[in-house]
Amino acid sequence: MSRLLIVAFDVAESSSLAGFADALGIPFDLLLLSAGVPAPIGAEKVFLAGMPSIPVADAMAKALARFAAPYTHVAAVSSMRSKDILARTAGVLDAAMVTDAVEVLGVRKFKRPVFAGTVMATVEVAPSAILLTVRPAGFEAPEPAPNGPAENVVLDADSMAERSAVSARSGGRPDLTQAKVIVSGGRPLKDAATFERVVGGLADALGGAVGATRAAVDSGIAPNELQVGQTGKIVAPDLYIAAGISGSTQHMAGIKDSKVIVAINKDPDAPIFEAADLGLVADLYEAIPELLAKVKS
């Protein structure tokens, strides 16, 4: 009998896979790893691990493998953390691993992007347990529904690695992967201070998150965790404003699920204009301040 375990690393993720569970159409439970109250998504059972921090992958995978052994499907929101941990869990369980599922075609059949999202692949999984990282954007969230009974669980295992020097996100702005509005900048932003003033300023005025291109991150203009694209974060906001971004395939792979893409670039031939819903050929140093003034008023 098929049964899905949704693994939510934090409360914000607890509602993200309701649409996926609905599409898969099998009974499901929810495991919330960090402390908090999960969203009502109609899980039959809720397991609360209450972890103060997520352990290193080897330990987390071992504990998760023990807990998830009875399930035919285990899914988490796609992120660097979930790819690190779930793929290892699949190895421990000798289960199949599907990365970045965007559509459910059957209980063992999924669609996922390959080649930086320029091709979609339909994959079929042989009879074994299936672990998945899922991009929630493609799934329509059902109405909230009460969860079944909650139970506290203890998940622990020792890690072979020692973790130190953990840097955390500078606070105040929404998480890129959850944000409704994202303002992103590329290398034309010159330096970290300019980037923060121009891109950060508009993002704050719109209550949004800040993103960056690989080129901006590589040249030290923006921190690595802001990188959007094939090898960075995959985002799906209602509004994505790309400032001074040419629109490489690798960057577009991370933003194509955005509802409205706005491109502001002074190069009229930049490839981003082919993908943008609204394009403005302009110097971003003139256009962004004007836009900021007009959305504030």
């Binding site: 992120s79 130190s164 953990v166």
Partner: peptide
């Protein structure tokens, strides 16, 4: 030193 969703961390193994 490894990149994470929120920044960086260091693992000694």
């Amino acid at each position: 030193k490894r990149e994470t969703d929120t920044g960086e961390e260091t693992l000694s193994m």
